[in-house]
């Protein structure tokens, strides 16, 4: 049986395999597996997707479809800092869009891109659930509240 012999030549795939194992090779855990793989590599490498499809014995197109459907996933490597600016309604009416524009101007990229030096990935997201503090910006999990365009420069410099 071919599927019984494992195809983990690289240490990367071994990490992927360990993640799949943690999820008990459950087909229904596909989203959780992809989340963990993305956490590990900061994006979803193609080889990982192929490996997951093979090990869960599901068609690659299903894995690919899921990986491109959900916003949490990206097939492109991300920057060292992921800057997420909330554009939920509460942040929108308090000027979240201006914060995004300011960041775009300063970083020279458009959301949801990554700077060439792979330092920053900028993304506009729909509601981070901290609506009373809008506009909210999250950099690698750290919240910045009531952000104005003026504060952007200082925050970027502090990184």
């Amino acid at each position: 049986m071919e599927s019984a012999t494992l195809l983990t030549e690289s240490p990367e795939l071994e990490k992927v395999e360990a993640i799949i194992e943690k999820h008990h090779y459950e087909e229904s855990a596909l989203i959780g597996i992809l989340q963990d793989v993305q956490k590990e590599f900061n994006y979803l490498p193609g080889t990982a997707l192929k490996h997951i499809a093979r090990q869960l014995a599901i068609p690659l197109n299903r894995v690919y479809n899921v990986a491109t459907f959900y916003r949490a996933f990206t097939l492109k490597p991300r920057g060292k800092y992921t800057i997420s600016v909330c554009l939920g309604t509460a942040c929108h009416v308090r000027g979240g869009k201006k914060v995004v524009e300011e960041l775009e101007r300063r970083l020279g990229i458009k959301a949801p891109d990554t700077t060439d030096d792979r330092k920053f990935t900028l993304q506009a997201v729909n509601c981070l659930g901290a609506c009373a503090l809008g506009p909210v910006m999250v950099i690698n999990g750290e919240y910045h509240s009531k952000v104005s365009p003026k504060m952007v420069e200082k925050i970027l410099k502090s990184l």
Binding site: L49, P59, L60, N61, R62, V63, Y64, N65, T68, F69
Partner: peptide
């Protein structure tokens, strides 16, 4: 039973694609 082609993306950017 082959699943060679599938959907990718969502919303207005949904499309038919062979993975990668």
């Amino acid at each position: 039973g082959i699943n060679a082609i599938g959907f990718a993306g969502r919303g207005t950017s949904k499309h038919i694609e062979i993975p990668f």
